[in-house]
Simulated assay, not measured.
Amino acid sequence: MDHRAVRSPLFCDVALAERVERAEVELIAASAEAARSRRGVAEGFTIPVAGGVASFIEADSPLNKVAGLGFAGSPSAAELDEVEHAFAARGAAVQAEIATLADPALGGLLADRGYRLVGFESVLGLALGDYEAGPAPDGVEVRPSGDGEFDAWLDVVAGAVLHPDVQGVPAHEDFPRDVLVSAMRDMAGAGVRRFAALRGATLAGGASMRTAGGVAQLTGAATTPEHRRHGVQTALLAARLADAAASGCDIAVVTTQPGSRSQQNVQRQGFDLLYTRAVLVKES
């Protein structure tokens, strides 16, 4: 059965948004713990704050952020002081990612403390239900990626991420390759599953996913420039959705840049826009 043929759009209420944001909080916290274990140093921090988390891994890391606020009451001034001082002590700005379904008072609270809006993220979801993957694109094979090819997988995915398709709203930030690779290692330590896509004998792309509490987080996918427009992204998406459904997840979620090719691709596969995250930054 084509999962896109007969279905109603997925509606996101506050309860579903809170569930998705909790999964994000758990991923960030687990990645921070993996970073500390891997490096054996305590340069970073993880601070619980009003049901969310504030995390710092290393300078310029994509995992440096405050996530999940606004679903367990607003943070107190003392809690925000602690978070802001912790980032400032490391010479880093505070980046807070706030869901539009969070407590509406949160935006004003942060604005009053000097946070400014720098961008948005789209959060999309698909109810898995009786998901069945369609036929794989000709010439593309997707399989789990084992530890033996971890370095090759990292090289392909990091290289592809650094050469994105240009469509939609540009990202407000980019990351050095070594820091991006480091974050991918830490996310792997947090239980993220890896998938490899091959065209012939060539590793053409890779993707990752984390499952927790019935939520499958699609935590990234990339295709090398020379293998784009051959169905690699579609194949990677279908493989992860099938794996998520088989693992007992009832929903898959993905975060994209607004209006991007990635958003277009997942909407073609039946994903619905659930909500947007506003990205607010306070400089140190």
Score class of each variant (00 low, 15 high):
residue 152 A to H: 09
residue 101 L to N: 06
residue 150 F to C: 07
residue 118 V to A: 09
residue 111 A to S: 08
residue 129 G to A: 15
residue 107 G to E: 08
residue 134 G to E: 06
residue 96 A to T: 03
residue 117 L to E: 00
residue 109 L to M: 07
residue 104 P to T: 01
residue 125 G to H: 06
residue 113 R to H: 05
residue 108 G to M: 03
residue 107 G to R: 08
residue 149 E to M: 07
residue 116 R to I: 03
residue 140 V to R: 00
residue 157 V to C: 15
residue 95 Q to P: 02
residue 96 A to L: 05
residue 108 G to L: 02
residue 127 A to D: 14
residue 161 V to H: 15
residue 130 D to K: 06
residue 116 R to A: 10
residue 145 S to A: 15
residue 122 S to T: 15
residue 158 A to V: 15
residue 112 D to M: 04
residue 150 F to T: 12
residue 93 A to K: 06
residue 113 R to P: 04
residue 94 V to K: 10
residue 110 L to S: 05
residue 149 E to S: 09
residue 140 V to D: 00
residue 98 I to T: 01
residue 147 D to K: 04
residue 159 G to T: 15
residue 133 A to S: 15
residue 158 A to H: 07
residue 107 G to V: 13
residue 126 L to T: 08
residue 97 E to F: 08
residue 133 A to T: 10
residue 140 V to F: 02
residue 133 A to H: 10
residue 128 L to A: 13
residue 155 D to A: 15
residue 118 V to H: 07
residue 104 P to D: 00
residue 117 L to W: 05
residue 103 D to G: 04
residue 109 L to P: 00
residue 140 V to G: 00
residue 135 P to L: 05
residue 159 G to N: 13
residue 139 G to E: 02
residue 107 G to P: 00
residue 141 E to N: 02
residue 158 A to S: 15
residue 149 E to H: 04
residue 122 S to I: 12
residue 142 V to Y: 02
residue 120 F to P: 00
residue 124 L to S: 15
residue 125 G to P: 05
residue 130 D to Q: 08
residue 125 G to L: 08
residue 139 G to Y: 09
residue 119 G to T: 07
residue 133 A to G: 15
residue 114 G to Y: 09
residue 156 V to C: 14
residue 134 G to T: 05
residue 155 D to W: 02
residue 130 D to V: 05
residue 150 F to A: 14
residue 110 L to T: 01
residue 154 L to A: 04
residue 149 E to Q: 06
residue 159 G to H: 14
residue 159 G to V: 15
residue 127 A to R: 14
residue 142 V to E: 05
residue 115 Y to S: 06
residue 93 A to W: 02
residue 114 G to L: 13
residue 123 V to S: 04
residue 156 V to G: 03
residue 122 S to C: 14
residue 162 L to Y: 07
residue 153 W to E: 09
residue 147 D to V: 13
residue 123 V to K: 08
residue 103 D to Q: 04
residue 132 E to D: 11
residue 155 D to V: 10
residue 116 R to L: 07
residue 144 P to L: 11
residue 141 E to G: 02
residue 135 P to E: 12
residue 123 V to N: 04
residue 96 A to W: 00
residue 106 L to F: 04
residue 130 D to G: 13
residue 146 G to L: 12
residue 140 V to L: 03
residue 119 G to A: 10
residue 109 L to Y: 00
residue 110 L to R: 02
residue 115 Y to I: 04
residue 131 Y to I: 12
residue 138 D to P: 06
residue 123 V to H: 06
residue 148 G to F: 06
residue 131 Y to L: 11
residue 123 V to R: 11
residue 102 A to T: 09
residue 94 V to E: 04
residue 157 V to N: 11
residue 150 F to N: 08
residue 111 A to Y: 00
residue 121 E to M: 11
residue 124 L to K: 11
residue 93 A to H: 04
residue 140 V to E: 01
residue 140 V to C: 03
residue 154 L to W: 03
residue 151 D to L: 10
residue 103 D to T: 02
residue 155 D to H: 09
residue 96 A to P: 02
residue 107 G to Q: 05
residue 93 A to I: 01
residue 111 A to V: 01
residue 99 A to S: 15
residue 109 L to Q: 06
residue 97 E to S: 13
residue 120 F to V: 10
residue 96 A to E: 01
